[in-house]
């Protein structure tokens, strides 16, 4: 019996997954591209309309601003957490890792609703602060960018912590010890020896959080009060409210292209293969 070459055998293994991707993902995606240039009329009208509309441009600016601020927030918090877990936590390490992972098991929808309970005008935070006499009038904690970014940082945090932690795990403590032994202060040793080694982890965490944030929908829709209109909500708006499939599709193509651009630009600075595919 002739044996299939190894390459073919591997292809057979990925074939079912590949078929599902092509039929249920790539094919509809092509459909979306097609709609964007055929509805309501053949041509690039949707795209010219998109660039002319200041509502659309603003929505893109908001989307990138929020994704950027979320990424910064996640990196600062995520780095500290990963640093502590990797270098100091001994006995509580499994617990801390579990706490980082825990949010993954709770739906984003539920987490966003919890933020509403916390941040509302008569929510837990405002009531506590008022009860303690710290404030007179309730603070505006949600239905604005602040609330959206806060909740998004919460949702995205594990995506920053995990790659940074994986990266830190591969760093031998010997380097910092050596630097200290040669007379570097603790801060200098961290800054010049430890931190540069963690940059690949930081970069892959940043990329992951940023790209996921660009397409985020639920949290901004629930906590934004309609004025923090990120592009995915705008797409929903076009399609559900106005049945404007043409413009909605054009917007999603634009989001896809911009996201691809972000990844391309990032590829100049980060080794994508090691950042996203190889975990040590």
């Amino acid at each position: 019996m002739p044996r299939l070459s190894d390459t073919w055998r591997y292809w057979f293994l990925v074939l079912p997954a590949l078929a599902i991707m092509i039929i249920f993902y790539i094919w509809p995606l092509v459909g979306i591209w097609q709609i964007s240039v055929t509805e309501p009329a053949l041509g690039l009208d949707n795209y010219t309309r998109m660039f002319e509309s200041s509502a659309v441009t603003t929505s893109f600016v908001i989307t990138f601003r929020i994704a950027f601020l979320t990424t910064i927030g996640c990196l600062i918090l995520g780095y500290s957490v990963a640093y502590v877990i990797s270098n100091f936590a001994r006995r509580v390490k499994p617990l801390m890792v579990a706490l980082v992972l825990l949010p993954f098991w709770v739906s984003v929808l539920i987490r966003s609703f919890s933020w509403i309970v916390l941040l509302g005008r008569s929510g837990i935070v405002n009531d506590t602060l008022r009860g303690a006499g710290i404030i007179d009038a309730p603070l505006k904690l949600m239905h604005n960018e602040f609330g959206v970014i806060l909740a998004m940082i919460h949702v995205m945090l594990p995506f920053a912590v995990l790659p940074i932690m994986a990266n830190m795990r591969g760093i031998s403590p010997a380097y910092v010890d050596a630097a200290r032994g040669l007379g570097a202060s603790e801060l200098t040793a961290f800054r010049k020896v430890y931190f540069p080694q963690t940059l690949p982890g930081v970069m892959s965490g940043a990329l992951l959080v940023f790209v996921l944030s660009l397409g985020f929908y639920i949290t901004p829709a629930l906590l934004g009060g309609g004025r923090v209109l990120m592009i995915s909500e705008y797409i929903t708006y076009q399609i559900q409210e106005f049945l404007n499939w043409g413009l909605g599709s054009a917007l999603s193509v634009a989001l896809l292209v911009l996201t691809a651009l972000v990844i391309l630009v990032a590829a100049r600075f980060v080794n994508l293969r090691s950042a996203l595919l190889e975990r040590n």
């Binding site: 509502a55 309609g226 705008y234």
Partner: peptide
């Protein structure tokens, strides 16, 4: 409506 909706969104976010 179509035109007004877009102006409305723009007014709220821009």
């Amino acid at each position: 409506q179509v035109r007004a909706e877009e102006m409305y969104v723009d007014a709220l976010i821009n």
